[in-house]
Write a protein that binds this DNA or RNA. Sequence first.
DNA 1: TACCATACTGAATAGTCATTCATTATCCCC
DNA 2: GGGGATAATGAATGACTATTCAGTATGGTA
Lengths: 197, 197
Amino acid sequence: MARSSDGNKKERIMDAAVVEIAHRGYHQTTVARIAKRAGVADGTIYLYFKNKEEILFSLFDRAMGRFIDEGRASLEKSSEAPEKLRRIIELHLTLVGEDRDQAIITQVELRHSLHFMDQLSRAQVGEYLSIIGQVVVQGQQKGEFRAELDPVFAAKAIFGVLDEMATDWILSRRNTRLESKAGAVFDFLWAGLKPSC
Amino acid sequence: MARSSDGNKKERIMDAAVVEIAHRGYHQTTVARIAKRAGVADGTIYLYFKNKEEILFSLFDRAMGRFIDEGRASLEKSSEAPEKLRRIIELHLTLVGEDRDQAIITQVELRHSLHFMDQLSRAQVGEYLSIIGQVVVQGQQKGEFRAELDPVFAAKAIFGVLDEMATDWILSRRNTRLESKAGAVFDFLWAGLKPSC
DNA sequence: TACCATACTGAATAGTCATTCATTATCCCC
DNA sequence: GGGGATAATGAATGACTATTCAGTATGGTA
């Protein structure tokens, strides 16, 4: 079976890891279990990943890459800052909400340790925050958002609200769609951002 | 040494656990290490805690108890909802900010697994959110806050911003005081809550 | 067909640690 | 000052599992 079905084997392992880790948690998940679900031998995992932790990092990279890429792409389509804000909110909630297992990885399992979060936040989370921050800056320049607001602070506040909605959605077992919160989130944040009158 | 110094032995173990877990993370921290720092034998831990996980739960209880008790107490002092909101914000950031090790436990280590978070959120986090929610409801009744806002949603949004500030403070190594963000947080949230004009 | 390079396998290893419990120490009361 | 109760000790146990690697399979090539 070698050499032919290679292309997707790493992906298959990652997909299996998402399911297993989402269900049992990272530390209760054995490498053997991931291998079994992926349909490969235990040792095969180590042909694609240096160790167990690297699997988790890869899951993060794959997920965060989508947030950043699609975030950037979506912002190009609109020009008004409030509209961009709305798009960011919708995209964030849609991406988190479309796969519950992946969301558990992102919202819970990836936040295991300070050491781990540190690496995450320095890299791509920081980049994502800066995308949000740029929207705020642009809005301020055009007078659409309050000028006295620190854009770095605002980006964190926006992210905080989105993140809390995502975590809350995972913990509530009800069958709601996460995107359905987008309107309320936008209204709330927009009220906090627009120039007071 | 038996029977006499009992009173504080459990506390000593918990304090040791906070330091060890904050520094190395829950899973890298061995029970033996906690025992050593607390100045007790490994086995002694099990006279006070059923198992390792229960130590973590106790740390949560102790911390969350303060948030709820002091939160309630602080709210009794003021009557205007905006003022109550300001107090909640200040209290939250002050409590998190006064002990960095404990903050790491609360913001990072206690969120280890879905199973774990589930238990936490159903119990005391839910209670804390409802305290915030009550402030919102009161503000709406008096016309100080926008009436059309869902108070449950608003409570989560407020918590989300506070939580993000706390996590961000831990990850940034700079020597800032977390409470110094209280003003900015209040301004932002208040803008989002007050009736539009 | 024979050979090589590469991919894959899974049983064995090696290390780790939570937890137990037989033993020892301490305290209190009569 | 001794006996019973309670607390504390820490070495030993047992279970678990990430990782390795010697062996096997596969696919392409000449």
